[in-house]
Amino acid sequence: MRLGVSRKLLSRVKTTEQGITVNGERVYTNDRLKEGDILEVRMEQEQSEDILPQPLPLDIVYEDRDLLIVNKPPGIVVHPTHGHYTGTIANAAVYHWREQGERVRFRPVHRLDEDTSGLVAIAKNPYIHQQLSEQLQAGEVEKRYWAYVYGAPKIVNGTVDEPIDRDTDNPHVRVVRPDGYPSVTHYGTEMIFGEGLAAKVSLKLETGRTHQIRVHMKHIGCPLIGDKLYGFAGEEETDEGIKPVTKAGGSATLEAAVQRQALHAAILAFTHPITRERMRFEAALPQDLQDLENELRKL
């Protein structure tokens, strides 16, 4: 019988009192099972001692004893980092669990950039984290995004298959480079505004590199509206910022219409590691991107 438990996790379970039992009796991993035996694997409950619980808003889409799915607003960091020790999704989740009387360590299965909104999956124990991480690596987790970009893709529906790695001159920036890590983004053009001045695109990730969507869309000449890090392809950047999109008879400063990169993680689907049920979650487009689309329709 295969439990699907990693060696690292299994070593932790083996050191836990009553970690592995059959019919209530502690056993070794090489013991054989008989039909009708009840096998139980126990892990110590953990909690994030280094994360300050904070009573912050937390948009919970789904929660059970194993998983927490939240809809992250823009401008919020998922996990505390240097310069962001408080005010994160982690701080809010740890407070939520404390109020529920749960001892849980914060384990995000994946992350979103600070200014990207949408769905984030959080595992509530190491086994769930391991199982969902393996699904991610195997391409079995579906992640779909909405984005608003400058220009319109020359190929309406396509795939960007270009390796990504750090910029040698700026380690905080990712770029397409031949010696980078394999990175694949599938996209579809949903709407075109102002005769090609901007577009709404849907995106599906086959890999999950840092800034992948932002880098790939810039690479094909359609950077995300509001993206301060990767700029606006095809127009000169100035000290005052990115030039506004213009058209005959007027202009529209789309940078002022949205205060962050116009990217939203709208759909998340995976197989629940315990129930084996295929689960699918969807987060509606947030208000700031709805407002941006309304402005784009005026172009």
Rank of each mutant, 00 (worst) to 15 (best):
V215G: 08
G188D: 02
E237N: 05
D59P: 00
I122M: 09
R166L: 06
A152Y: 02
E44D: 12
E40Q: 08
E40S: 15
T21E: 12
V184G: 09
G4D: 08
L3M: 13
S183E: 02
I267N: 09
N125D: 15
A147D: 00
M43W: 12
P153H: 13
Q137A: 15
E25L: 15
G151N: 09
K243I: 03
D227S: 06
A93L: 01
D165K: 08
D37P: 11
W97Y: 04
V176C: 11
V13W: 06
Q100K: 13
S183H: 06
E142G: 08
L203V: 03
V22M: 13
A147E: 05
L205N: 05
D31G: 01
E44G: 11
R98Q: 12
D167N: 14
L203K: 04
A92T: 05
V258Y: 05
R111Y: 08
G4N: 13
I20E: 10
L268D: 08
L285H: 04
R297S: 13
Y150Q: 06
E190G: 09
V41D: 03
H110E: 05
I155L: 14
R177A: 04
G158T: 02
F270T: 00
V184Q: 14
P273K: 11
I155V: 15
A199E: 04
G194A: 10
I225A: 12
N91C: 10
V156M: 14
H272V: 08
I20N: 13
V104F: 12
L10H: 09
H110M: 01
P53E: 05
D227E: 10
A262R: 02
R297D: 00
Q135T: 06
T275D: 02
R42H: 14
I51P: 02
W146L: 12
D66A: 10
E206P: 00
P73L: 10
A123V: 01
H172Y: 14
P273E: 09
F106H: 10
Q45T: 04
H129R: 10
F270S: 04
L296V: 01
V149H: 10
V104H: 04
H110W: 04
H129F: 13
H110A: 07
I20K: 09
K72D: 05
V27G: 11
E63H: 06
D288Q: 02
D288P: 03
S48M: 07
T253N: 15
L33Q: 14
G19Y: 13
R7K: 14
V41K: 06
I242R: 15
G226K: 01
R297C: 04
T116G: 07
E44N: 14
F106L: 03
A284E: 13
Q212T: 01
I38E: 12
V78T: 01
V215R: 01
A138L: 08
T15L: 12
D115I: 03
